[in-house]
Nucleic acid binder design. Structure first.
Lengths: 133, 133
DNA sequence: ATATATTCCTAGTATCCTGATAGGAATTAA
DNA sequence: TTAATTCCTATCAGGATACTAGGAATATAT
């Protein structure tokens, strides 16, 4: 229950890997080897992280990826949302009536509360916290 | 991300349905119709809830299901765990080294903290709270 | 007794999602 | 020009999920 996708776990590992290198760039292949991630699969994940402004990249020879911000300025919520989208236990968290039960959905506030709780936890920790264990 | 299975949502709806009837028994078919759940599918869910001691059942004519406890004595964690098992963001929450990273898994404490946060939220709310919205 | 209503049990199945691979195009540095 | 890299698109296998089917066991009512 509530298991985290491999994609997101890969993303976090990749970010921790980059965080320990600071300014030096790392190639996808290097990260893949260091963190035990399928290389080609990782490319797609890094591209996603880049489109959310969490990392930068340079193409061509001597290219690679590097952090776009300080690890203490990247929350875990940002990483998670970049990869798997917003936390959404049920479809009706965003709009009332957006589930089969319409406006008579009793558990809605319960789920909204859960979402807020999870969001808060993730937003309170930064990549720096996770790197340090 | 972190979406709740239809099974668990059905289970919660079924429980709220039974909670409003108190002692009167309801058949699976009645619950299914009232809560907009596929009848045959619901049977399996109710059987699961029963095996966890959350509801009682009687077979045969005039049989059906009823609450086994007061709704204020049933936490949402119990319902969720009955249907989809324990909250487990990653495999290594239970045992160190139980993931591909072995003992060098930096995010482990982060995930353990998340699990505790979710568990606490779910354990603090009862079925009664959810019925009341 | 018999018919009827119910839970309970076991299989099967279509569809979607996830994790992954393949092949190359675009770009950059040496 | 070559080599190394990111970037883009397509494809695919396996498993999970949400369901369906069919009936066996059980209890009540008539």
């Amino acid at each position: 229950m509530f298991s985290v996708s491999a994609r997101t776990q890969y993303a976090i590992r990749a970010m921790t890997c980059l965080a320990t290198r600071r300014e030096r760039a790392a190639t996808a292949a290097e990260i893949a080897q260091a963190e035990n991630i399928p290389a080609k699969y990782l490319e797609g994940i890094l591209s996603r992280l880049k489109s959310f402004g969490l990392i930068d990249s340079e193409r061509g020879k001597n290219g690679g990826y590097r952090m776009a911000k300080d690890p203490s300025d990247i929350t875990m919520l940002e990483i998670v949302e970049a990869i798997d989208g917003r936390i959404k236990p049920v479809t009706c968290v965003d709009a009332i009536g957006a589930c089969s039960q319409g406006a008579a959905c009793h558990p809605r506030n319960f789920w909204i509360g859960l979402k807020s709780t999870i969001d808060a936890y993730l937003a309170e920790r930064t990549l720096k916290d996770v790197v340090q264990g």
